[in-house]
Amino acid sequence: MSNGSDHATHWRRTRALMWVTLTIWFVFSFLVHWFASALNESSFLGFPLGFYMAAQGSLFIFVVLIFWFARAQDRIDRECGFAEEDE
């Protein structure tokens, strides 16, 4: 089942997923905190927003992001026929 084009499709979709994941990662790792001072002007759950994002918000998004990534990659593996058999 694994011919050359399957490999290519699988890798193209895997790469696309990687870039989407890393873009979200970049936003919550760097972009948000670059503007922490401005964000601190607004508040969220009673916190200054800039502080909240660094103390909790970004962390929470990273956790959800990795769970989502693991599911999405598994779906790609299955649809392209490259998932491990014994599961």
């Binding site: 997923l17 990687m18 994941t21 890393l22 990662w25 919550f28 790792s29 905190h33 502080f51 660094a54 103390a55 970004s58 962390l59 990273f62 956790v63 992001l65 990795i66 990534f69 693991a70």
Partner: peptide, 16 residues
């Protein structure tokens, strides 16, 4: 808090 963000976000790189 840069440490806190760095030491959690790194796992996104580990996973992907």
């Amino acid at each position: 808090l840069a440490f806190v963000v760095g030491w959690t976000g790194g796992y996104v790189l580990v996973a992907s």
